[in-house]
Design a binder for these strands. Structure first.
Length: 673
DNA sequence: TCATAATCCTAA
DNA sequence: TGAGTTAGGATTATGA
């Protein structure tokens, strides 16, 4: 935990360190302790809350009020900014700092203490002082702290530029500047709005609402305090969303051009003047002429901008205008500090603009207006269908082009076009031509842009594809993967690594036989018990209270089991639960075979390798290879490599996998933080 | 065996 | 001043 003049920073401080310190002080009767704020005599206040949102999940949390100081909990920031399989300080530090935090076990203390200066230093730095008794909040974050626990968050803060990014977000949503204004934001008045602590502890709504309130005040408008919208059913769907075009699955060995609408939903709201204050109630719509109002494709009516300019379009215009300037300044900037500020700012402005639409559709929110959100998506659906149609109509041999173009896929604001050319450069040229021609058919500021070419392109299904990503004809920029196992954190590392390697071999090296051989070797390793346990750990989020689940699932049952073993360290709502599938009698359900990896390790439980092959590896690999290989099933999943070694009985000491795994995974599997 | 519901996570 | 949205694939449990 770091204490500066106006901020407190650390890892999991809000739910562990602060409550712990406060409770200990109370237990010890240190009555002058809980005065950390900058208002003399004002005691800090703590209460339990449950935060729940679809995007951030449900989490129990402490809410601590400390006047005049920002509480910057790195755990909260990283949970919001990054989707990871594990949020332990150890794993996060390894990921972002390339630095593992080594723990010192208590059995090594006397040895280190009796050693030399270096071993004593190690003890001081790494030994985590246990402080379990007063623990009140169950989570995988171990109630111990070492010097490193203070030092690593500081490094993360700097490395991830969190100070810049969060202060910029606070500023674009209108918070008072906590630091001197190094680079003022033109047209954005930074004197009303969202405190940094809100950015970490509350949702998206507060940011949008803050902007609406500020703009309404400028205009002299009042924002109504609406009663909870009736008929707001939180599990159903309130209105129709975007169109996802049919995916023509396959392995494309021709360049596929991608056309994207830039900031689609914000630009729709600006182009059509969609706002609370421009909406014409259904029963009054008849009283307006076509000169005065527009009817959106969902049938909702809005007045045109010459009669009344909406607040939302104006906010969006300012946000996107400011972003354009930030990006231009970023291009010119040379000073690393200025660059960090500007990049944080352009990101904040983009996120901010994109959340306005969602805010209008949030029926459980403060100011829902489904006429706006339903109109936005309806315009969007019309636009993507139109774009597809225009591509098909224009790029034909009849019109003098070398081939008939085909839209092979598209999602919400993008279309993927096969112009049936063999060169990336030609695909780019046609892509630019299409973007320009189609943009001309839409109202300003709607803009269809050519963004990139995929070549080759492996389209598996809707929302799932991979390809090499080209923005210039000379060389590809990267491999891009969407929705496939490699980008999903609920798969074990083995599956992610195998799929990733196969994609590389197929797309990059163009070596399909090599990919097949690799799969066979991996399956053989798995079945021969040669797989490191750390590769087999699956993680899933505990999204609600264990009791509230309607069915039985592996991670939930494990959470239940762990609570019986030790309530203090059992997973809590919002935590991610790591587990492995261990061997059991035939016919036993998967949810009865899930086990805590550390428990499995310590008790030498054998892993159910067959289960990993059949349930986690086989299908993803078949999906990957089916568009490429004639006999994927036979080549990958039958033959010598699928023969398992004679399985050790659960009690046998010779569980090769466990001994092997234990030696190799001690560092990465220790429970921490 | 097959359809369905619950759940998780991702694309946009 | 509590909580952005919908679409969609995949896995698992469950019951007809």
């Amino acid at each position: 935990m770091q204490l500066t003049r106006s901020a407190l920073a650390g890892y999991n401080i809000v739910n562990f360190d602060f409550p712990y310190l406060i409770e200990r002080a109370a237990a010890l009767g240190v009555s002058d302790f809980p005065f950390w704020g900058r208002i003399r005599g004002s005691r800090l206040r703590m209460k339990d809350t449950t935060f729940s949102s679809k995007a951030y999940g449900t989490r129990e949390s402490k809410e601590i009020t400390i006047e005049g100081r920002v509480q910057f909990d790195l755990l909260q920031a990283i949970q919001r900014d990054h989707k990871l399989s594990s949020y332990s300080l150890n794993s996060v530090s390894a990921r972002f700092l390339g630095e593992q935090k080594e723990d010192v076990h208590h059995s090594a203390i006397s040895e280190l203490q009796g050693g030399n200066e270096e071993t004593r230093r190690r003890l001081a730095v790494y030994w985590r002082v246990p402080c379990a008794p007063a623990r009140t909040h169950a989570s995988p974050y171990c109630p111990t702290r070492s010097l490193k626990d203070a030092y690593l968050p500081q490094r993360l803060l700097e490395k991830l530029l969190l100070t810049y990014n969060y202060i910029e977000m606070a500023r674009v949503t209108g918070a008072p500047s906590l630091l001197p204004t190094f680079f003022p934001i033109p047209h954005i008045d930074a004197h009303l709005g969202v405190p940094i602590t809100f950015l970490l502890s509350r949702g998206q709504s507060i940011k949008v609402l803050s902007q609406i309130l500020r703009k309404a005040q400028q205009r002299g408008l009042l924002v109504p305090n609406l009663p909870r919208l009736s008929g707001a059913n939180s599990d159903g769907v309130a209105y129709e969303g975007a169109t996802v075009l049919e995916a023509k699955a396959g392995f494309y060995e021709q360049p596929i051009a991608t056309l994207d609408f830039a900031s689609l939903y914000p630009s729709i709201m600006m182009a059509h003047n969609l706002c609370y204050c421009t909406l014409v109630p259904k029963q009054q719509a008849g009283g307006f002429s076509g000169e005065e109002v527009t009817r959106s494709p969902s049938g909702d009516v809005f007045v045109k901008p010459h009669l009344a300019r909406g607040i939302l379009p104006e906010i969006l215009e300012e946000l996107l205008g400011a972003r354009k300037r930030a990006k231009a300044d970023l291009k010119k900037a040379t000073d690393p500090f200025e660059k960090a500020v500007l990049d944080g700012r352009q990101l904040a402005l983009k996120v901010s603009a994109n959340s306005v639409y969602g805010f209008t559709g949030a029926v459980v929110g403060k100011l829902p207006c489904l006429e706006i959100s339903a109109s936005v998506t309806a315009y969007g659906r019309q636009m993507i269908e139109n774009t597809k149609k225009l591509v098909h109509e224009r790029f034909t041999t009849t019109n003098g082009y070398a081939a008939d173009a085909e839209v092979v896929y598209g999602d919400t604001d993008s279309v993927m076009v096969n112009f049936r050319t063999d060169t990336v450069g030609e695909a780019m040229r046609l892509g630019r031509e299409a973007a320009e021609a189609i943009t001309a058919t839409f109202l300003k500021p709607i803009s269809l842009e050519f963004e990139k070419v995929y070549f080759p392109y492996l389209l598996i299904s809707k929302k799932r594809y991979a390809g090499l990503y080209w923005t210039r004809p000379e060389a590809h920029d990267k491999m891009d993967t969407k929705g496939i196992e490699t980008v999903r954190r609920d798969n074990c590392l083995l599956v992610r690594q195998v799929v990733e390697t196969c994609l590389q071999k197929i797309l990059l090296e163009r070596d399909v036989p090599g990919a097949v051989a690799f799969v066979q070797a991996t399956i053989s390793d798995l079945l021969m018990n040669r797989m490191d346990l750390s590769l087999l750990v699956i993680t899933k989020g505990l999204t609600q209270e264990v009791e509230d689940y309607d069915n039985r699932a592996a991670h939930v049952e494990l959470a239940r089991k762990m609570r019986l073993r030790d309530p203090a360290t059992a997973p809590a709502v919002g935590d991610r639960i790591p587990y492995v599938i261990v061997k059991a009698a035939k016919g036993v359900k998967a949810y009865e075979k899930s086990e805590d990896p550390i428990f499995a390790l310590e008790n030498n439980l054998p892993i159910d390798c067959q289960h990993y092959l059949e349930h986690y590896l086989a299908k993803p690999l078949l999906r990957l290879f089916e568009p490429i290989l004639k006999n994927a099933q036979r080549e990958l999943l039958s033959g010598d490599h699928t023969r398992a070694i004679s399985q050790p009985t659960p009690t046998a000491a010779g569980g090769g996998i466990m001994r092997f795994a234990k030696a190799r995974t001690r560092c990465s599997l220790v429970r921490g933080d």
